[in-house]
Design a binder for these strands. Structure first.
Lengths: 204, 204, 204, 204
DNA sequence: GATGAATGAGTATTCATTCAT
DNA sequence: AATGAATGAATACTCATTCAT
């Protein structure tokens, strides 16, 4: 998707304003001003405000990696991989602006924008698949509905923690939740998969 | 808090419109029309739109129990308690409209509404404390930062799953995520607390 | 003009609010509340807000004496009479609320309310006539266009000083303006009338 | 201060409506219509109705000289100077629209608009200072609290006469009040200052 | 392409007035 | 008489969109 300089400026401006003011507080004039255009000029690049928001969402969801693909270096031990994902999540919690944009877009999607809903579906599939792949490699388990389910809950847990961070609920020190996360990744999940495997075997 | 019929009609109308259109799309005129009032009549019950939204939120967050307080019947076995909380969560995932309202309010809180932010803070504290209490009783562990941390993650997981539900990501069948939830509650968490306890002892 | 208790309460309330908030800020509901009535009840006493304002003006202008009629005690010396009028004016400058009401009504009259304009005309005639009478008696001059003109300027000066007081211009200490007023009344005006009289005689 | 055509149109429209209907009756829609704009267009020039009124006042009070600065031509005799100020006042009484605007603004200031109140304070100081300077030069007296006090009363008298004119009290023919004004300026005030000076000397 | 003035429908809010009770 | 809920037109203000230049 070729995108000229003007469009990029507009998108960047829109993203910034959405993060600062929310979609409700994002006006065309505000976007134009921040992008360095006149209000009228915007219409040379986009036919409507709606169109801009659509592209913001498109780009916004596209850019976010959330969970980086773990390097395909097979030599790495499980512990290293887990450490990497742990640090990745930690980093995720810091990215306030990006998370904010994400939740604002989710909000828009919920209101009924089906295009965005479809994009979210694809994105979540991608994110969860990546997490699942990491688990499969790190824990040496067979990929299947249960690995997917664990990955889904992991994704959900991250979303929920980010939400609490954005809402500034401050109900607990990160120190403790991090220890839980670390334990889950290094000991809880492995143990969990063992239980499942043995159960599955029991069934067989 | 006595609440007359007019206020109830207005709140109900506001709630419905928020769920359908989001807070952005919720106009006073819309509320008035759906409540069967003229625009001016609204002001007999509420001094501003802000005040209506505040009440919607107050009621909205107040009504939602999310995790029911576990009955104080000490005779119950851990398994029964866990089953109760499991079913409570299941039920939670069904309440689409209520969840939607919750996320819209969260959105508003993020944009900067400090009243709502404060409410959320209080609510999350309450919810998490309840979950923690259940864990303490069910698993027979001592209450402390780690029980709180686990409760916080549980809350986060639920939020994240509700979000995925509302976004209709449909990345996995509920059957599997439910099994993960069930395992976590019945075996994962107990084992997890054991690990922590033994670690704590090692330290000593 | 018989006036029942309800009407009096309403008028008093209206007067107070006008003084505090101006006519613009005077609402029927506000009047009703302060008068201890329901909004609807007002309409048993007055057919419209306009009618209330009209009565406020009627009463308002009627009550104000501005320059009290000097007692008709002929024994008094000029100096005493002048002292009385001087003190009357001093007192006038203190009556902030009453002055305020007066200027608000004048404002309304200027906007085009002809009834009020007529009332003001009558009132000013009355006020000026009183001042003139005092001058005639105190200075022992013959009543005529010139005594009237001096009285008119005196009235104007008082109005202007009250206006500056209400506007809080604070351009000078009352001490000095009072001395000017005192000199004018005790020496300036007598001298002034002498000059005129001699001029008039010159003409003859 | 560059002021484009649109702003000027709006100010002119606002001024006219204020004079016709008072500030209370001055609506944005009314201004827009008379200025030949749509309601929204107004906001390209002014950020609020408040801002328009502020500019009206700023211009309104700024333009009004009331008492022109007497030419600094030292050759002029006292009589000439006094004649000039006398004619200036005469002219003042004619400017109905301008005076009306002034009283409407004063009304607004009294209601509590602190910006306008401040402007009035500055303006009155300026006006009175000018009158005082004229007196000092014309009568050859030393500037001090008493010259200021006389100037203040002169200003007050003018205001009061303008008020009576606007209210159409018509209690006396201008012929007579003008004669009083003329006598005051040419003989009353000089004599008055003599009296004061001699009194001051008596004290010493 | 670019500008920014102009549009007009839409928003929350106010308030004199009405009317069923 | 009295209430106060209800009305609806009016108010200031916003903003996506258009269009002459």
């Amino acid at each position: 998707m070729m995108m000229n300089e003007g469009k990029l400026k507009i998108l960047q401006a829109a993203r910034e304003i959405i993060v600062e003011q929310g979609i409700k507080g994002t006006t065309l004039r505000g976007i134009a001003e921040r992008a360095g255009f006149s209000t009228g000029a915007i219409y040379h690049y986009y036919t409507s405000k709606e169109a801009i928001l659509y592209d913001v969402m498109d780009e916004g969801l596209g850019e976010v990696k959330r969970i980086e693909t773990v390097s395909q270096d097979d030599q790495k031990e499980a512990a290293v991989i887990i450490q990497e994902i742990y640090e990745g999540m930690q980093e995720r919690f810091q990215k306030d602006a990006e998370s904010r944009l994400q939740f604002y877009l989710a909000h828009e999607a919920m209101i009924g924008n089906e295009d965005i809903q479809q994009k979210f579906k694809v994105k979540y599939e991608d994110w969860i698949t990546r997490i699942e792949a990491i688990f499969v490699r790190a824990y040496g388990v067979k990929q299947g509905p249960m690995t997917r389910a664990v990955a889904t809950w992991t994704m959900a847990g991250i979303d929920g923690m980010v939400l609490q961070t954005l809402l500034r609920t401050g109900t607990i020190e990160p120190e403790y939740t991090n220890r839980v996360l670390h334990y889950l990744l290094t000991e809880g999940f492995p143990h969990f998969f063992q239980l499942i495997c043995s159960k599955e075997m029991d069934r067989e």
